[in-house]
Simulated assay, not measured.
Amino acid sequence: MSTLPYSEAPPMAPVVPRRRRRLRLSGSLLAALGFVILISAWFAAVRFLKVPAYILPAPEAVVRALWSGLAVSPTSPMGYYLPLWGSLKNAALGFLIGTGLGIFLGSLMAEIRTVEKMLMPYAFALQSLPKVAIAPLIVIWFGFGDGSKIAISALLAFFPVLINSFTGLRSVEPEKLDLMRSLSASRLETYWLVKLPHAAPFIFAGLDMAVVYALLGTIVAEFLGAQQGMGVVITQAQAVTDVAGVFAALVILGAMGILLHTLVRRLELKVVHWGNRGSK
């Protein structure tokens, strides 16, 4: 039996990209199907079950509320653009501060046992505190301006990144560490070349949660007192029993959550191209 030379063998590499495209397409179709089912159930509950509008407004009422806030100038105080920008700005700053501290302290605790024993109990104690209960205290400390929003946002984003960074750095295989010691690598070189790449999928899993928590923390702080922001929009709509307006603001926040999650996942696919999560 004659066989083809290795150089003439049919290429197999394109199979993987095609499979990934099929998986992405099937995932998109399932997401679209879930959206259609959700809207259909919502429509049926309003029309056939006669759910009152003050409990569940009709989908078309929410669309009208969305359109009234989006079909305006981006600089108009009557639209959603300025409040959304204010919330996203504070959430982004809180996210950067919280995740930066989380990675830094997680790395210190993973590298130095003494630091772990000193800080880890207090990190868990801080996480166990109900954030809604301590939010008024943070507002007292930082005021009703952007400071309190950034502080609560950073606080919510801090813990998942801290724990994931610590777990990822501590889970490096001993064989890799032994290899770096045999090569006389410094502690910093071992951290940068072995530990941090290994921990990258764990860190991005923490970032995926933290980016949504940061936005949530900003909204919670805006409920307690602010001049602008999506939390203020929701509070004002509740004050006049504009349930459709509340739903419209929630739809925008949900869309922002999906967008932020997608951005983190895209960044992960670019950075952690060697990991299991990035290959899916």
Rank of each mutant, 00 (worst) to 15 (best):
A199K: 07
M230I: 00
S148C: 07
E173R: 14
L224K: 02
H198W: 15
A133N: 13
A135N: 05
T241V: 11
I234P: 00
M209S: 15
A205E: 05
D242N: 15
P197R: 08
G168V: 06
G231F: 03
D242W: 01
I134L: 08
F166M: 15
A226K: 01
G231C: 03
W141C: 10
T241Y: 08
K176G: 13
V233W: 04
R181G: 10
L177S: 12
V243L: 06
T167P: 08
S186E: 06
R187W: 08
F159H: 03
V243G: 04
A239R: 15
F159N: 01
R187A: 12
G229A: 12
A151L: 11
A154Y: 01
S148G: 08
F202I: 13
V232S: 08
Q228E: 12
I152P: 02
L156K: 00
K195A: 06
L196R: 12
F223A: 09
P174Q: 13
L155I: 09
A205L: 14
S184M: 13
A185D: 00
F142Q: 09
W192E: 11
G229I: 01
L183H: 12
V194Q: 08
K149M: 05
G231V: 04
S184A: 11
V172W: 08
A185T: 01
Q228Y: 09
S184N: 13
A133D: 12
L183Q: 12
F223L: 14
A210V: 04
G217H: 03
I163G: 08
A200R: 01
I152E: 00
I140D: 07
A244L: 08
G143E: 13
G217E: 05
E175K: 14
Q228T: 14
Q238W: 09
W192H: 07
A133Q: 10
I234K: 00
Q227H: 10
A239F: 05
I219Y: 01
I150G: 05
I234S: 01
G168P: 01
A135G: 06
A135K: 11
I140E: 11
S182C: 15
L162R: 01
A237Q: 04
Y213C: 13
R181N: 15
S186D: 07
A226H: 05
I219G: 02
T235R: 10
T235K: 09
A221H: 02
T241L: 11
L155Q: 11
L188V: 11
A157C: 05
Q236E: 10
D208P: 04
L162Q: 09
L188F: 10
I152N: 06
A200E: 07
I152F: 00
A210M: 06
E175W: 04
M180K: 03
